[in-house]
Write a protein that binds this DNA or RNA. Structure first.
Length: 822
RNA sequence: GCCGGAGUGGCGGAAUUGGUAGACGCGCUGGAUUCAAAAUCCAGUUUAGGCAACUAAGUGCCGGUUCGAAUCCGGCCUUCGGUACCA
């Protein structure tokens, strides 16, 4: 009989639900295990292949752990705020709240057909006041600690739509995706979280977590800690002004021949001479629509204009011109850069183009100090043209010059970070309202905690001209000051949705908790999350923000751990004809037809079999029949051994000497498979785990001639290995054997019989000059003399060494014997 | 541009530490079964030459280290993710 997947899946899903199999008892902390997958963004109403690829293998891992006796907590929820729902509303008129809640209902139903172990009592969504209230509370805690503050920052502004655009809404040519108008950068006052205060700890903490090395490396580079010197340049004719620059090359300071300021700095307007002001303002206008990537590209032709003002180099009192150039960014570092054309590639190019002075201050070994440079010399060398430092080693002079600057109050040692503070203001509707009011007499005032949540009003014009849609709702905007009771206006921005995802793993533990942001007892018991799985695209942003918030929560006594996610893994992306699946491209592959034809177990097992989990790949259904055939064969095997456990009992292990030759082979195979399976599944290498089960299945062709208890022994192990990967089928096979209790209600796992893994002979490869010439089957741990003799007796070895002299012979025990001849 | 990955048969991929390249599966070819087909089962399947034994080449490209490299090093090419307002 063909495996009746539809009936089997329905049957077990009902049993699991009736038995509350996946309700986790969070008070049972013995072998507690929190496994988490990044929650779902409910944009469309359909789960696509990518979702299955993310969730099904993760669930298989959780099930494996459950079968090994862990008390597994595996929740699922919805990252429900965000831009797409708002765009959809603008296009269709359907309110984000309505479309989002509808999508969530549809998605929940589809998630249930996957047959995952989600504890549905722990389900949460971020767009309800019960959740986002605590975003507001958290904001206020950060505010109280001085970690939330306002400053100016640029946004993408469409002058035609009169709205702020997300980077995604700006096309590659710099125009608005709706109206094709050129997008400008415009400054707005916005809220920031001081993540930079935690930069060092975020860096150090990486050493303590079990994350992919590449992710840690990306975070390390994102934080970008660099050691250097801050130098104070005076400004000629402006005694009250100074320009601070950060440099990692203080040894080149005598070679600084000009200074570059970010065009947007206020200082630029203050310093520029009348003669240059028109040119400067034209330049600022001309770069308004450039993105940061374009501005800082090292291949783009450098642009810039002089301000007419001069800076004073503190080391030699020299007057050097002040320029502005787009590659200096106002929101990075001090916004000012000292330029040393002789020893920096970008400065060399700039100085050459604009005929600025190039002065060599570090001499390359073996070159003439008068020789003209044809390119920047960036390596260390000997100091020249540097007054009292001449003749010294440039590396040593880094600290010498810094010390000398410090003694004269012209600078100091400094650590700089690439990391910037987290901008959380969004000029959008569908998000958490920022709990601040602005009062003419009291200034910015946080809403008292007992007045939270500040609810997001339903009625709003999404196309409201200007900054934020909420600004158009006067009932929302106009309020009274919590401090003085006078008239006040609310902040009309909402929060970045990364705020929602920065602490949801704590809320899952009790989403209905009303006495605080989350139940801190449960938080301490269950976090850090043991295993976190999600896309690599989150490597630097979400995963850094969540770490920051976790550390902040620790500092205010809410959690007792330093990191939110102990172990992390990224699933790969499934593409369609090489393109990322997305609703907008209309290229999503719907799993529905595969579920209908093969069932969810075959489908999820195929996804796991496709390749390495962390690699992903292009979607193809070509191989799914192979997995289906495997399932059919395995099912038939169990069917032909129905109710075996009702008439016989399998021992916990067999003695190899008591087994027939056939049984011995199968016994070794099943133990080898089990040992491999454990390692592969533990490390999310499901493709090789499935392959191992296929090999096992192929090796059971002669099982029928074995004894009853032996067959039961083998099939029990086979069923338990199937269960994590194909949960419905695993349960079914287990029950076919005659077991009354379900595998996930009563977890079972079998030990490997280590004695069955011992091999008595081994294949030794004989190479001549690195080429395989013979394969010898020899006892394990044979000594060199024995191998040598057998090897040299081989005809092929003889023919390939004949008439040549032996240079040397290499023996690697149990592996290889290599003869080198000339 | 910058930061971080990936590249192996016709296809998806395997090779746990530098030691048999191609496990497992798809596809294809041949056979069994069938009136025939589907399904199933059995055998073969990196490429080139050869009936075969066998020989040579081969893990994106070029070079290097080593007795030995898919694996380590240097330089490229292609491609994917991120680049701070998609999430």
């Amino acid at each position: 009989m063909k495996y009746p997947f539809a009936d089997v899946e329905k049957k077990w899903q009902k049993k699991w639900e009736d038995n509350k199999t996946y309700k986790t008892d969070l008070t049972d902390l013995k072998k507690a295990l929190y496994t988490l997958v990044m929650f779902i963004y409910p944009s469309g109403s359909k789960l696509h292949i990518g979702h299955w690829y993310n969730y099904a293998p993760t669930d298989s891992w959780a099930r494996y752990k459950k079968m090994r006796g862990y008390n597994v907590f595996e929740p699922m929820g919805y990252d429900a705020f965000g831009l797409p729902a708002e765009n959809y509303a603008i296009k269709t008129g359907i309110h984000p709240k309505d479309s989002t809640l509808k999508n969530i209902d549809d998605i929940r139903e589809q998630l249930k057909t996957m047959g995952c172990m989600y504890d549905w009592d722990a389900e949460l969504m971020t767009c309800v006041p019960e959740y986002y209230k605590w975003n507001q509370w958290l904001f206020i805690q950060l505010y109280k600690k001085g970690l939330a503050y306002r400053k100016n920052a640029p946004v993408n502004w469409c002058t035609s739509c009169k709205t702020v655009l997300a980077n995604e809404q700006v096309q590659t040519d710099g125009t608005c995706e709706r109206c094709e108008t050129m997008v400008e950068r415009k400054n707005l006052t916005q809220w920031f979280f001081k993540i930079t205060d935690y930069a060092d700890e975020l860096l150090d903490g990486l050493k303590t977590i079990d994350w992919p090395a590449k992710t840690k490396l990306m975070q390390e580079h994102w934080i970008g800690k660099s050691f250097g010197t801050e130098v104070k340049f005076g400004v000629a004719g402006h005694k009250d002004k100074e320009i601070r620059v950060f440099t990692t090359r203080p040894d080149t300071l005598f070679g600084a021949t000009y200074v570059v300021l970010a065009p947007e700095l206020d200082l630029v307007q203050e310093l520029t001479t009348d003669e240059h002001i028109a040119e400067v303002n034209d330049y600022i206008e001309s770069i308004k629509s450039l993105s940061e990537i374009e501005r800082t590209s090292t291949v783009k032709e450098k642009t810039g204009v002089p301000t007419g003002a001069y800076a004073i180099n503190p080391v030699n009192g020299e007057k050097i011109p002040i320029w502005i150039a787009d590659y200096a960014l106002a929101n990075y570092g001090t916004g000012s850069v000292m330029a040393v054309p002789a020893h920096d590639e970008r400065d060399f190019e700039f100085a050459t183009k604009f005929k600025l002075q190039i002065r060599k201050v570090i001499l390359e070994k073996g070159t003439d100090s008068d020789a003209e440079l044809t390119e920047a010399f960036t390596a260390p060398g000997t100091m020249v043209n540097s007054a009292q430092f001449d003749g010294m080693d440039s590396v040593e002079c880094k600290s010498k010059i810094t010390d000398w600057l410090a003694e004269n109050n012209n600078g100091e040692k400094r650590i700089n970070y690439r990391l910037r503070d987290w901008l959380i203001s969004r000029q959008r509707y569908w998000g958490t309202p920022i709990p601040i009011v602005y009062c003419d007499s009291c200034g910015e005032v946080p809403i008292p905690e007992n007045q939270l949540p500040l609810e997001l009003p339903y009625d709003v014009d999404f196309k409201h001209d200007g900054a934020s849609p909420l600004a158009g709702n006067s009932e929302f905007v106009n309020t009274t000051c919590p401090k003085c009771g006078g008239e006040a206006k609310r902040d009309v921005d909402t929060m970045d949705t990364f705020m929602d995802s920065s602490w949801y793993y704590l809320r899952y533990l009790n989403p209905k908790f009303t006495d605080g942001m989350f139940d801190t007892k449960l938080g301490d018991d269950w976090t850090p999350v043991d295993m976190y799985v999600g896309g690599a695209e989150h490597a630097t942003m979400h995963l850094l923000y969540a770490r920051f918030i976790h550390k902040f929560l620790r500092d205010i006594g809410m959690v007792n751990s330093d990191e939110p996610f102990q172990r992390l893994l990224h699933q790969g992306t499934i593409t369609n004809n090489g393109a990322k699946m997305s609703k907008s491209k209309d290229n999503v592959v719907n799993p529905g037809i595969f579920i209908d034809e093969y069932g969810s177990d075959v489908f999820r097992m195929y996804m796991m079999f496709m390749g390495p989990y962390e690699l992903g790949g292009d979607w193809s259904d070509k191989g799914i029949v192979g997995v289906d055939r495997f399932v059919q064969r395995a099912y038939a095997l169990f069917e032909s051994n129905k109710d075996l456990s009702k008439s016989t009992v399998a021992p916990s292990e067999f003695k190899m000497d008591d087994l027939s030759q056939t049984e011995k082979h199968i016994y070794q195979l099943v133990n080898k498979t089990l040992a491999k399976y454990e390692v592969e599944v533990e490390n999310y290498r499901f493709n090789t785990a499935v392959a191992a089960l296929m090999e096992l299945n192929n090796g059971l062709k002669e099982l029928a001639v074995c004894s009853n208890e032996f067959r039961l022994f083998i099939l029990e192990r086979f069923a338990t290995m199937l269960a994590p990967l194909a949960p419905h089928m695993g349960e079914e096979c287990w029950s076919i054997l005659g077991n009354e209790k379900g595998l996930f209600d009563n977890p079972v796992w079998f030990e490997v019989d280590q004695s069955a893994l011992v091999q008595d002979s081994v294949t030794i490869i004989v190479q001549v000059n690195g080429k395989v010439r013979a394969k010898l089957e020899l006892p394990v741990d044979s000594d060199e003399a024995a191998v040598k003799e057998t090897a040299w007796n081989d005809n092929k070895v003889k023919s390939h060494t004949e008439g040549k002299s032996v240079v040397k012979e290499i023996y690697v025990k149990n592996k290889i014997y290599n003869i080198v001849v000339r």
